[in-house]
Every structure is written in structure tokens, then in C-alpha cells.
Design a protein around this nucleic acid. Structure first.
Lengths: 347, 347
DNA sequence: CTGAAAGCGCTTACAG
DNA sequence: CTGAAAGCGCTTACAG
């Protein structure tokens, strides 16, 4: 086959594998997809052929039949660039793996939510993924539900009944961080909270207060500063906390951006971190490892959450196609307390 | 058709459009792909139908025939998380649009480059995209070339002859920034350079020196500090520059991470930015708008570069398939000088 | 300029 | 447990 010769790296196809193993394409397909209804011997022969030929499935071919042209809309409104970036990475990676198509729409205010939703529906999306803060927008959720479009809320702090979600347990995450600070010996801990309208901010704050209370520690109102999750708001909040007569020995910030700001303020005041002041964050964005000292924070696996959201959506669409009614799923991924250099016992 | 009724949002297919317009699927396809060999009237009818039905092509179907299962390898070694993130976004977006498949391999040292390359070839990739710093690795380039695998170098500072690349003009970018600082009235400008082994670092440095020389300004050796593109190295370099007897009134940092570090150091010394000190960066990463004051920097369109790299690769693969010998292309995207709040005239 | 036929690689029913 | 047939949505030759 001279035509094949020309491009030396023509990809191996399922047919090649089947021939090499001496089975039908169907059997090869079953083995590759982990279908258990295949005899031991054939299974092994196919697996060996896959190895030998270095076979990798062609996703276009697969998706044409399977996830079959599933279209997933992403409606976002105003998250941080870094966050959306990481999320999209997971979304695109998984959809490219599963052969689904991703359509992205941005919307500004509430008014344009309607228009953006319309555009997505017009394009024939089968389901919609909602990153924060839209994941908590009752209006958007209602509208999509009315059209019969399945929705996955990503990173909500309080999943609504009937809505599927992919998230971490913000409450437990903030609890773990608070406990860690207590274990280090801190007693006067300041807290910078995030946008009060966002459910994750609420959960993190509540966890902090509860955990302190359980340890028998009272948190004076002055030790809670309200930020908006932005660096700039973090500057203001940190100044507030660090100018107190009795300065806290540690500041727990509701996200990394505000922690970075707190660090800048502390450095500006000549405070050594973590020698004189412990600062911790939440999210583990790329910024956390850029800073010096590197930030102790709670890792939120954003990319993995993006992948999970697509996988979950595909699963639900498949269920619908088969006539089942998929139950709303609340998928909670694991957070991790990442100990770096910005936290230490109090002086 | 009861089956169709069940999922209300079944996507419109090319066949639907063709029927709606009363033409053959082929004609519809031609119109959608901008093929000029279609009569005016049919063209308009098809376009109207596309609008009316809200048709969006199914990429899986298309790619199966066209970009036809093209596989693009990405071999990366050690860039910053934020950079890789942004680049991958473009890579995945474009490949998902074109229906190409992306396979990613990470390699550590030089030794593992061979192994990683092997793995990609084994998987049947048709071409390889090389982000920095691998884009400048003569060894990797040679190896892939020997196998007849086309390569696209991304963001190299000095494209090698015979190698296709997608990049910005680092020299002109750094030149524009230097000119801007001169226009603001700065004469004593410090420079923090990046990893001396990286070609973009070299180009940026040379542009700074040349532009200063053209303005008749001598740059004392003490005004050049060597960093490694990392935040941490930026701290050290900034301290060095700010402790000079005659402190520069502006510091031009070779990337945003080091600029963020310089800001932290300056704030630590109680210097007001930009009132007492101007600081500028390069790249325009998400960090640039997180900081306060927001960073004046040179925007490198990383996501667009990722898209362009995939598009270029697909074009070259197509040329090969058709028997042509694609000439090496050096695609230079536009940078932009982004003026924010960290730069101002000297006091 | 327009269209009928075939096929990209894979998997879903349908048989045995 | 295994396989022959058909088709997902699109586009590439091949005709006219």
C-alpha cells in the first residue's frame, strides 16, 4: 500500500489491532473498553496486540457513535482569570478525551444571563456547566431546568436540592486549616473572608468560627475582615487586621489572592513570615507557589473538577438517552491541606 | 419520529440544513466551509437555513474525514504552571475545534527527553509542539527531524533555521517597553534579566541595552541583575538593585513573576509604586492584574499562540498528506504594551 | 456549479 | 462469549 507508506506514522486503527490479534473488530473494541464479556484468552491476545502496535483509539471515530456529538455549554460570568483558566483546562481535556464538544458563553449582568442562555440553547447544547459564581444563581438554574436542560454546578459551597454538582467540601477544608493553625499553637487568629454573597465564602467562614468555638476560643469581631476574594480587597482587609492593637499571630485568608495581598502588607510593615506572622490561603492557585515564602493553603483540584464535571454530564446525558431519569449527583472531590513555608508556630 | 422527540435538543445535522434549504448535503457542506464554487442563490438559501435552524457542525464527524485523526504531541519540560496552563488552553481549544487529538508528555532532564519522545512516537503522533524551554533544545529538534516528524517551536526567542515557530518578537517587545520608560522620563533604569540560557531572556536583554544605547544612555553593569525567571530569584535581584547607592528610578523585569517579587521588595522598603519607583514586567500573566498596583507589562498572547501552533501544525500535516513539502514558517504574533498603574514618571 | 457514492474509525444493536 | 452488519456526521474524490 504505497499510500500508507508515504506518511510513516499513520496511526494504528482498531482494525489493525483486530487483525494482529486474529479477532473481529468488535472483540477488540470490547477489550479496549473493558467490557467483561470476553474470554480470557482473546482478551490477552488483544491486549498484547494493543501493546505491540502502540494502539491509541481515535476519539473522533468513537465519539461519533458514543458520547455521540454531545454538546456541553459553559456559562461563566466573572471568575478570576486564573481560576477559569484552570477549570477550562479540565473541561477541555476531558471533553477532548470523550469526544464531546464544548461551547463557551460569557455573560455580564443578570440581564445578559438570559441572552447567553438563549445562545447556548440555540446552538443545541445538551447540558450546561456552571462555574462559580453562576453555580449559585437560582435564576439561571430555574431557567435551564424549565427547558429540560441538565445542569452541573461547579464549586458551589451549598449545592441546591435537585441540582447536580462537583465541588470540594469547603466547610471541612476551612476546618482542617483552622485546626492546623490551632495545632501550631496559634490562639489569636485573624480571618479574611471572601465575597459574602458567594456560598463557598460563607462555608469557609462558618467552619472557621465553629472550629475556634470548639477549641473554646472566642473570635472578637475585629478579627474578621471582609474581602471580596480580590487581591486589592485583601490589601485593605490585611491592613485592618495588622493595625489592631493586639495583632493576630496568624491570618487565615479565604483565598490565595487575598493571602498574597496580606503577605505584601506584612512585608511592607517589616514583618517576617512566618517568623512573626503566619499567613495561609485557600485554593492553591499557581500563585501559591510563586510567592515567597510559598503559601500554606488548601488545595482545590480545579482541573480535576472540570474533568469530573464533563464526565458527570456525559453520564447523565447518556442516562437520559437511554430513557432513565438520572438522579442529581453531588460529587465531592478531596481537598488537601498543603503545608508550605508561610505557616509556623507563633513567636 | 418518536425517538427524536424524546431528547428535545437533538443537534441539527448537516442533512437537516440541506433538506431545509432543498439542496444536497454536499452543497450545504461547501457553503459552510466557505468553498467559493457555489452559486449565489444556493449559497444564500443554505446560509438562511443555517441561521434558522441554529446549525453547528459536529466536529467529530468532520474530523473523521478531514484533520482526520491528526495527533499532535506536546512535549514539555519545566515551564511555570501558569504559562503551561494558558498555553494548553489554546492548544486544547483549537484542537477541539479542529478535531485533532492532543497527547501530552512531560520530561525531566535531557536523558528523559529521549524516552518521552519515544512514547509520543509510539502513540503515533503526526507532529510535535515544543513549548519553552524545549523549543530551543537542539537535541530534541534533531531527533524529531531525523524521524521525519514536523515540529513547531513555541515562544522561542531565536527560531532555528528549518524549524517552524510561533512566537512574539521578544526583541521588539522589550524595545517598546524600554522606550516607554524613556518617554516617561526615566534615565536610571535597572534591568532584571531572565535565565541566561533561554533565548527570550537573551533577546529581551539585548533589546534593553540597544535601546538605552541609542538614547545615548550608558547602563552601568550594576544596573543589570541576573534572575532565573522565578519569583524567588526576582527577590534577590530586586534587593541587589534597590540597595545600590544610586537607586534606579525604574526597574524593567524580564517577566511578571520577577516583577511581582520586585514589588514585594519595594513595598518592604516602604517605597511607593509608582510614586517613588516604577516597576514593569513582561508576559502579562494573570498575576499582572492580581497585583496592586496592577502591573504595566508586555502582553504575550499565550493562548492565541497555542491555538496558532495547532492550526499551523494541521496546515503542515495537510500539506504533507497532499505530497507537498511545507516550508518552515515563522509565525510572529503581535505583542502589546499594556499600560497599567505600576509605571509613572520619575519623582 | 451541483450531486450520488463511498468511507473516515468506531460502537450499537442484532444475531448466534 | 463472539461476530457481521449498519450507521454516527461529515467530506473526499469522482462524475456530470
Amino acid at each position: 500500500m504505497p499510500k500508507r507508506e508515504r506518511h510513516k506514522h499513520a496511526a494504528i486503527t482498531l482494525l489493525d489491532v483486530a487483525r494482529h490479534a486474529g479477532v473481529s473488530p468488535m472483540t477488540a473494541s470490547r477489550v479496549i473498553n473493558g467490557n467483561p464479556r470476553v474470554g480470557q484468552e482473546l482478551r490477552e491476545r488483544v491486549q498484547a496486540s494493543v501493546q505491540a502496535l502502540g494502539y491509541r483509539p481515535n476519539l473522533a471515530g468513537r465519539s461519533l457513535r458514543t458520547a455521540g456529538s454531545a454538546r456541553i455549554g459553559v456559562l461563566y460570568s466573572n471568575p478570576s482569570a486564573a481560576y477559569l483558566n484552570e477549570l477550562m483546562l479540565g473541561l477541555l481535556e476531558q471533553s477532548s478525551l470523550s469526544g464531546a464538544q464544548v461551547l463557551v458563553e460569557k455573560c455580564g449582568g443578570i440581564s445578559s444571563q438570559r441572552a447567553a442562555t438563549e445562545r447556548l440553547l440555540q446552538a443545541g447544547v445538551d447540558g450546561v456547566i456552571l462555574p462559580p459564581p453562576l453555580c449559585d444563581s437560582a435564576q439561571t438554574l430555574r431557567e435551564l431546568d424549565a427547558r429540560g436542560i441538565p445542569v452541573i454546578a461547579v464549586a458551589t459551597g451549598a449545592p441546591l436540592p435537585g441540582v447536580s454538582s462537583v465541588r470540594i467540601d469547603d466547610y471541612q477544608g476551612a476546618r482542617a486549616m483552622t485546626r492546623y493553625l490551632l495545632e501550631l499553637g496559634h490562639r489569636h487568629i485573624g480571618f479574611i473572608q471572601g465575597d459574602p454573597e458567594h456560598t463557598p465564602a460563607q462555608a469557609r467562614r462558618q467552619a472557621f468560627l465553629d472550629t475556634m468555638a470548639e477549641a473554646g476560643l472566642e473570635v472578637p469581631g475585629t478579627h474578621i475582615a471582609v474581602g471580596m476574594f480580590t487581591y486589592r480587597s485583601g490589601l485593605e482587609a490585611a491592613r485592618q487586621l495588622l493595625q489592631l492593637r493586639q495583632r493576630p499571630s496568624a491570618i487565615f485568608c479565604s483565598n490565595d489572592d487575598m493571602a498574597a495581598a496580606a503577605m505584601a502588607v506584612a512585608h511592607g510593615m517589616g514583618l517576617h513570615i512566618p517568623g512573626q506572622l503566619t499567613i495561609t490561603g485557600f485554593d492553591d492557585t499557581p500563585m501559591a507557589t510563586t510567592l515567597w515564602p510559598e503559601l500554606t493553603t488548601v488545595r482545590q483540584p480545579v482541573t480535576a473538577m472540570g474533568k469530573a464535571a464533563v464526565a458527570l454530564m456525559l453520564e447523565q446525558l447518556r442516562a437520559r438517552r437511554e430513557g432513565r431519569r438520572p438522579a442529581p449527583t453531588d460529587q465531592v472531590l478531596k481537598f488537601a491541606l498543603v503545608k508550605r513555608q508561610s505557616a509556623a508556630p507563633p513567636a
